[in-house]
Nucleic acid binder design. Structure first.
Lengths: 200, 200
DNA sequence: ATTGAAACGGATCTAGC
DNA sequence: GCTAGATCCGTTTCAAT
């Protein structure tokens, strides 16, 4: 959906605290729908959410201002760009002091082929997902960009044979009190103290 | 940006082969821009791409029909939903036959907390990224959903301390002949056989 | 104050050159 | 392929609860 003044609004959004305001059912529904397809019209949104277009517009505006909805983006088919190879790299640094971490993160953040980077617990310090056309390109990335970062001690690369699932849609089931969403609601642990006695 | 007939068009898109049609500079530019912000208007797009709004509209339409642009989605702040914990799980199956793999993938694909799943080379069979509110919820996911999948032999969980980088924007530098994008164009290996001799 | 409806203005889409 | 016009929809305003 087109959000005309999104950019202006983002300004004030940053200043606001990310208040963990409880999200009401309308917000949750809108988030779910917009995560699936943000090109949906207000009319369709309103119908699917069981609300008026006005309500939906106002709520979306608020969700954007408060930074819950950060932006909308086009999802591109990686294969169409020839980017069929996913590589996970576990990176170990020589020293884990603040400066070393910052230096690494800054260098990594600028590399467009690095889709994700996580500071990890356990054996390795960082886990990266890198997307490339082929192994030759990956090799160039490692040699030209990874190993040139000061303090990088060790690399361990794992190659993905297939991307089984990839979604940008965060789960929302936990936001509703009960009645899970993508779930046939298997069996939920009773809320402590409500163990069935008489009904049995 | 609003794409009115997106849904109808998607139908024919699927039938078409994902032709690795060479992408011209306009398409590349549009992809870059739409990956950053799909709420941008046609006018802005056209200006940034150095083309008319009509050209851009037609090209976008084509990119959507051919499935290069799959859809647009809202990007949500995970923290706003309380989803601050990222876990990577390496899963090993007892047997790697077709049936076992399919069964696992089907079960995993339906779990909304699984954001990504890759079939891997190397020691483990699958690598998952799971997003949850806290460790308790992760524990429930493992017990209720992962270990209940038949054929799962071994799990190895690694916890992310911080999400340093996360982007949905695929790199595009490789699509252009030369002149890299997010790059000050450091030093490119000459194309084999053009080693400088006389110029030196 | 909050909500819905309806008019407005601007952007998308299309047809004609 | 570009320009200009018709149409649609996000945005705003206003009235009613």
């Amino acid at each position: 959906m087109r959000a005309r003044f999104a950019k202006i609004l983002r300004r004030e959004a940053i200043s606001r605290k990310t208040t963990s305001t409880e999200l009401d059912p309308l917000s949750i529904r809108l988030i779910e729908l917009m995560q699936k397809d943000s090109d949906i019209g207000l009319a369709e949104l309103a119908e699917a959410a069981g609300a008026t277009t006005s309500s939906c517009w106002r709520r979306l505006d608020e969700l954007r201002k408060t930074g819950v909805i950060q932006r909308s983006v086009a999802v591109i088919d990686p294969a169409a760009l020839g980017l069929t190879v996913n590589v996970f790299v576990q990176v170990t640094l020589e020293k884990q002091n603040e400066a070393a971490l910052r230096a690494f993160q800054n260098r990594i953040a600028r590399r467009p082929e690095v889709m994700e980077c996580y500071l990890m617990s356990g054996d390795a310090d960082y886990l990266l997902r890198v997307v490339v056309e082929d192994l030759a390109q990956y090799h160039r990335f490692v040699v030209d960009h990874l190993t040139t970062i000061p303090g990088v001690a060790n690399l361990r690369s794992s190659f993905a044979l297939d991307q089984v699932k990839y979604t940008t849609a965060l789960p929302t089931a936990h936001l509703r009190g009960s009645e899970a969403v993508g779930d046939p609601a298997p069996r939920r642990k009773p809320p402590r103290g409500s163990a069935r006695r008489k009904t049995e």
